[in-house]
């Protein structure tokens, strides 16, 4: 059935639920959620704030709540999320709203660094480039997590983040896990320390929303389970030494 008009409700402002605004948006054959938001901003209300860049699922900047579910809006076809001809679009959950659909990503990225999601190099520019063996278990494990685009969908999906503001969240912990398995990263001790503290990997209840909603089909829940195993191993080793 071809629809003519979409009933689009957009949650605006910090009081999102109290500031819902409805728009009639013309339906097109080929239309993403981001296209719908852009149509509203370009044709109905130029003051609508939202964030996007690449439009092809690379940059991770356009994630929003669509009918209560976090999604990358540029790669979500509107026909997949319509309830009849209606859709509700809101700012990402678990992050402070700046305005309308734009959230402050600072807590998300700060936690990325808190989880030691940074490169810990030991070589200098004068050293030869260290070879990476693509066939090792560690490399294969790291490979499963490196396609993260920092879109914060997992962070918005996580109920543990909602319950505990200190929790580092799935994306940051998954990055810590990939670095722990990276032959070129020398930060093993500091990573294990960072993910063992308050809000670290042991806060995770393995509810699995991160893995269920990751638009790139990554599996942060298993990455966090890996961190739990590694920290437990290092706990026993420290006890012996």
């Amino acid at each position: 059935m071809a629809l003519d008009v979409l009933k689009v409700t957009i949650e605006r402002g910090p009081d999102a639920a109290a500031a819902q605004q409805s728009f009639d948006v013309p339906a097109y054959e080929n239309q993403t959620v981001l296209d719908v938001v852009s149509w509203v901003q370009q044709n109905a209300d130029p003051t609508l704030s939202y964030r996007f860049a690449c439009r092809v699922g690379m940059c991770g900047s356009c994630a929003m709540m669509v009918n209560g579910v976090p999604r990358w809006t540029c790669r979500t076809h509107i026909s997949k999320v319509l309830d009849g001809n209606a859709v509700t679009i809101g700012p990402l959950r678990n992050l402070p709203v700046i305005k309308d659909l734009a959230v402050d990503m600072d807590p998300f990225f700060d936690k990325w660094v808190e989880a030691e999601g940074v490169h810990h190099g030991a070589l200098t520019r004068d050293d030869p480039i260290a070879p990476v063996d693509e066939t090792t278990v560690e490399r294969t494990t790291a490979n499963t997590g490196i396609e993260c685009i920092n879109c914060s969908v997992c962070y918005a999906a996580c109920d543990t983040v909602t319950a505990n503001k200190d929790y580092l969240g799935p994306a940051a912990l998954q990055r810590a896990w990939t670095l722990l398995n990276d032959a070129k990263d020398e930060g093993r001790a500091s990573i294990l320390d960072a993910v063992s503290g308050k809000g670290g990997c042991h806060t995770c209840h393995s509810m699995g929303s991160c893995t269920a909603y990751c638009p790139n089909d990554l599996d942060p829940m298993s990455a966090i389970a890996g961190l739990k195993r590694e920290t437990a191993r290092s706990f026993f080793r420290r006890g012996r030494s």
């Binding site: 063992s196 503290g197 042991h202 706990f235």
Partner: peptide, 12 residues
């Protein structure tokens, strides 16, 4: 590492 100790105590 109090969180880790509590976690280990609970798992053990």
């Amino acid at each position: 590492m109090k969180e880790l100790r509590l976690y280990m105590a609970q798992r053990i």
